[in-house]
Design a protein around this nucleic acid. Sequence first.
DNA 1: ACGGGGGATTAAAACGTTCCGCTAACGGGG
DNA 2: CCCCGTTAGCGGAACGTTTTAATCCCCCGT
Lengths: 333, 333
Amino acid sequence: MAMVSIKDVAAHAGVSPGTVSNVLNRPGKVAPATRERVEAAINELGFVRHGSASTLRAGHSRTIGLSVIDIGNPFFTEVAAGVEDVASELGYAVILGNSAGSQDKEDRNLRVLAEHRVRGVLITPSGEDTARLDRLREHGISVVLVDHPAHRPDQCAVAVDDVAGGRAAVAHLLARGARSVAYVTGPLSIRQCVERRQGAEDAMRAAGLDPGELKVAEATTMTARAGEKAGGDLIAGGLPEAVFCANDLLALGVLRALLRAGVRVPEDVALMGYDDIDFAAASTISLSSMRQPTYQLGRIATELLLDECDNPETHAHQHIMFQPELVARESTQ
Amino acid sequence: MAMVSIKDVAAHAGVSPGTVSNVLNRPGKVAPATRERVEAAINELGFVRHGSASTLRAGHSRTIGLSVIDIGNPFFTEVAAGVEDVASELGYAVILGNSAGSQDKEDRNLRVLAEHRVRGVLITPSGEDTARLDRLREHGISVVLVDHPAHRPDQCAVAVDDVAGGRAAVAHLLARGARSVAYVTGPLSIRQCVERRQGAEDAMRAAGLDPGELKVAEATTMTARAGEKAGGDLIAGGLPEAVFCANDLLALGVLRALLRAGVRVPEDVALMGYDDIDFAAASTISLSSMRQPTYQLGRIATELLLDECDNPETHAHQHIMFQPELVARESTQ
DNA sequence: ACGGGGGATTAAAACGTTCCGCTAACGGGG
DNA sequence: CCCCGTTAGCGGAACGTTTTAATCCCCCGT
């Protein structure tokens, strides 16, 4: 519990506290001999800068917040890895918040972040309520949206084109010769699910089919278990020639249901997932999927955020929209 | 950027800053009428307490650190979910650090945590170097080990019995009639891998077999890709009757290699994983595995840590050792 | 009517750092 | 040898909160 402060270091090195601070923050400003002496004292005493004091005085911290919808989902995990890598490279700490889809929890998390006077927040919002984010901005906290398009022009956002993704996925299925397609989706309250459906319908239309014929099966959660159930329903209701799932977890569940029922994949039914999580390739019948630059999403969002924080005058807000990439594997031949 | 401080609130409510502080921290101490007036002022002005100032003065923060080895591994993700839930319930923020198996990175992360004067740290250490953790304790930061036995008595730790897990897994395989068993492991620098092997050997011994006959295949990483390669090697080198893998990712890879080669699972080869991640059950041939109370690991570790922080005088250090549970699925019949 | 007790509130001193304005010292050009 | 420019280092105020000791005020008992 030996709290050694900058003053102790100063005394030990025979300089003033201000000089120690300079060694810490602008080493170039201090004469080499003095610097060495101070550094020696720091090591000898085991001094660790008090971040809170620093934040208080300097007016800003080296901390960012990350608020995700489901830390259990490999998609967000990979985003978090990207965020953590960049933040750690630049000496920033990451405070993690898991909203678990609840706006209440998200609010609580944002409040904690505000109290910590984080430099900025990376968030995949749970809903479309932008007021809370604007409130953060009023407190001088930058906000970058992750996997979500921007609400407003003076804001950075990094997203992936879900409409294009849905379109490419279904176009791929149709190109294989499928004429009937089912869409297994998560809750349609989720923006991504809606936009992927929209893309799927676009693809039907482009192929001269009636988009109304896209058979939509809505699962209550986006898990393998829910996918298995949806797969069973599909079998009971008459199989289409191809199935497009809103994410890989659903697709793995559907795959399992089909194989159990003796349906051959892809011969009888072609199957596509979305996200290209690791397990898509590792599945026994490897799963075709739409790859998103997930890790990059996290990296770039963090880079934008820190640029906005560190260079507010030169920073240009950007709305980045990635294009997903089709990965064809066994499940679609 | 309207930084409204406790002083502004005080002025607006016609009280002193001290009273506002009391409303915030010991609402009971202040007369109801005054309290209401202050609360109204807080809402009206949109005041948010400055956590750093609070930390600086109070000498401790409402923040804990979480340092894991691989945030991409579903095991740690689930631990993190448990940690986050408890922390959030008690109003603590969680600073996330991903050591990615590198001691350097872990060191950097611990330094950041120390600077933030976190209340305590939850860590799954990358190696066996305990000095760094002791240094944290000297700075008054409590440390709780997660998925790792305690280094010392005056310390909490929450772990799972890996020797027992390895023993149960291989005993299960032997009980099915297997006489030859292979162990597909991650790097033997990882404690868990070593202990699971030890348990496996125990089980051989208990069944009257020579533990030296356990065929050990060491993969460089604990991923499905590495497992697939190991599976190929196994096939090339002559198949055992049963395979035990150090985690589920490896097992899924082995499974894929076997099925591709036309080996029937479990008829020709029985297969066991470890961790019981969600994808074990979702695999086409569902995978038998050793279930660990992963989420609970995170929850309980956090509860212990916060108890140690909040009730230092009554807190009793605990070394909790969970027993893993065998989950038999298709891959072992 | 007076003194005292106790609850509510205040004033002021920290906490450890940063940063700004100053001084002192030094060296080179005139 | 003086003056000026430059640079190193110092002193001290300020950041927003918590907390302790002191003050105020009201009311009760005598």
